[in-house]
Structure formats: C-alpha cells, structure tokens
Design a protein around this nucleic acid. Structure first.
Lengths: 163, 163
DNA sequence: GCGATTCCTTTGAAGCATAAAATATCTCCG
DNA sequence: CGGAGATATTTTATGCTTCAAAGGAATCGC
C-alpha cells in the first residue's frame, strides 16, 4: 500500500495478515472490555479474578502455582499476587504440598464457589448476546478458523525456536 | 433476548459461544504475547509504545490526547502516562493547542519516525509468519467473520445502552 | 454576560502484567 | 552419598491499565 514499486506478490498477503490481525485484536479487545466492565459493575470483581476461580473450579482438586500459571497463560510472578489477593478475600485457599515442599496447592473455597456460581450465568449470557449476530454455522466456521490460526501460530513459534 | 422461553434450544448455542470466545481470546493472547516479546527482544520496546507511534504516524499531523485514546482503545488516563514516557524518550512531542487551551497536540518526532521505520518490516513479517498457516481465502473468511462479530458486539452494546 | 453543561486532561489508588534474579527444594547421575 | 542441574515459587523493578475524582476550559442557552 505504501510500498511504491510493488514488493511483489507478497505485499498484498502481508497487508492482509496485518489488517486481519488488527481487526482480530480490536474485536477481542472490544469483547474483553465489555466483559470486564460488566464484571466490575455487576459483581465488583475483575476478569483475572474470575478466570482464576473458573480455572480452579474446573480443575476440581488442588492446583500448583505453575499449573495455574499455565492454565491462565500468565507469568508465574503474576499468579503469586493474583492468588494473594484472592486468599485475602477468602475466595481461594493456598496450602503447602505434603509431598513437595517447593509447591503450594491452590483451591477454591466454598465462598469462592458461591461467588463463581453467582457470576457464571450472567457471564455466559453476555457472551451469548455479543455473539448473537453470528449464525450457528458462522460460529462453527469461526471456531475452526481460529483453531487453525492457533496451530499456525504455534508452528511459527516452533520454527523460530529451532533456529 | 434474555427471554425465558427458549432455554432448551439455546443451551448448546450458549456453550458454543462461550467456547468460541475462550478460543478466540487464547489465540489473540498467544499472538499478542509473541509480538510483545519480540518487540522487547529485538527492539527493546513495548507493544503500547509501538502502537502509539504507529497511530501517530498514520494520523499525519497532531493528535489530541482524547483522539489518541480513542484510536488506541485505551483509557484517557492511560494515554497521559504513555505519552509522558515517550516524550521522555524523545520519540514523541506534546505541545499545547493554539486554538483550544484544553488540548495538547501529540506528534511523532523524527527520532520516533526512525524508530518506527526500523520496527515496521520486522513486525509485519512476524504477523505474516504467524498467519501463514491460513490460505488467502481462509484469511478472507476469517476477516469477514471477525468484522461481523464486531458489528454484533456493537449492536449488543447499543441494545443494552438503550435499556 | 452568566450559569449550566459538556469536554479535555491529569492525578491518585489499585490492580494486572512481564522479565529477571533470588531462594528453596527436588532429582538424578556418577 | 554428593553435587549438578532442573523445577517451583517469590521477589524486585518497571510498566501498563482501569476507574473515579477533580481541575480548567470551551460552549450552549438564555
């Protein structure tokens, strides 16, 4: 577009990918922002807190800090502060492991489970509303393409790591 | 839309939307994280800084703080600190408007333009690599669906604002 | 002209996020 | 057994982000 002489066939593909990425980012930011502000307004909480509770509930038993970090896709340093605040609010418990003195086991408390249950239906309804403009088949196509994109990104990461 | 009667049929659609959303979020987080760490590693900068420079370059002339806030889709308060740091690094200038004493005009400096030009090709190549697993037609389909999703989200926002 | 309202920006408090270094523990190989 | 490396977690420094509140400045209505 700005390149004068036509860098070649790849120019249009490149711009396509960049534009697509910016569009994707803007759409997810839009959704994420709305979820965040509704969580704040309706439940006086934040998205990371909600995510921690949801992951702990889904995990069932106790989860190590590292495992939580992987599941949330955030750094382990971050997980320390995150659970710290949730422990302070009594929504989560953190106990040393009996078998490995390096690790802590994080669990959702009954209060945490109550809080999560109070939020889940609303949360699901917001998402549903926001995606309502897409038909079921469009959602299926989108899901497949996003899955493929994710594989593509992971492949590109592997390729770079190998060099 | 939240009406009572059709909970039966809508259940699976709901889970679909939620799963799709989580997948979308995880894919964008993956890409964003890679862009962020490469910007840090190769250019010793951050994504928000890059975004500010790119927006200012694209804007051409001076841009008010509010306009920058809208373009970046971040809060006003955030823009203050962001430009603050970039001004300190001499990549951006900030001058009071002559016609409206409430506003500041932010501009990219020659040094900022140089820095941006140094980063742009690499940035575009990363994105291109990460999207390489999708064919041109898949990218086009994805772009169209994301655009439609965005409209859907905006419609849902309007609808809520009206109530 | 003047008051009310709206707009632009900054400030302050809290939280979220990363990377890098420090600490502690575990594991495994010799 | 002992030490080298791997793993789990916290700490530190820095930066990004939001919301809410507050200030000054422009504009609208009269």
């Amino acid at each position: 577009m700005r390149g004068a002489s036509g860098i070649g066939r790849r120019t249009s593909a490149n711009s396509d990918a960049l534009r697509l990425w910016l569009r994707l980012l803007s759409a997810t930011n839009l959704i994420e922002g709305r979820v965040r502000s509704r969580l704040r307004r309706d439940f006086a909480t934040t998205l990371p807190r909600f995510d921690v509770l949801a992951q702990l509930e889904q995990a069932g038993g106790g989860v190590t800090m590292s495992e939580l970090s992987r599941r949330l896709m955030v750094s382990n340093g971050n997980v320390t502060g995150l659970t710290e605040r949730l422990v302070r609010e009594r929504l989560v418990s953190r106990t040393p492991s009996l078998t490995d003195r390096r690790t802590q086991l994080v669990r959702i408390t009954p209060a945490g489970r109550r809080a999560l249950r109070a939020m889940t239906p609303g949360h699901r309804a917001w998402i549903d509303d926001m995606f309502a403009g897409l038909s079921a088949s469009e959602r299926a196509t989108l899901a497949a393409l996003v899955a493929k994109l994710k594989r593509s990104v992971e492949a590109s990461a592997l390729q770079e790591a190998a060099s």
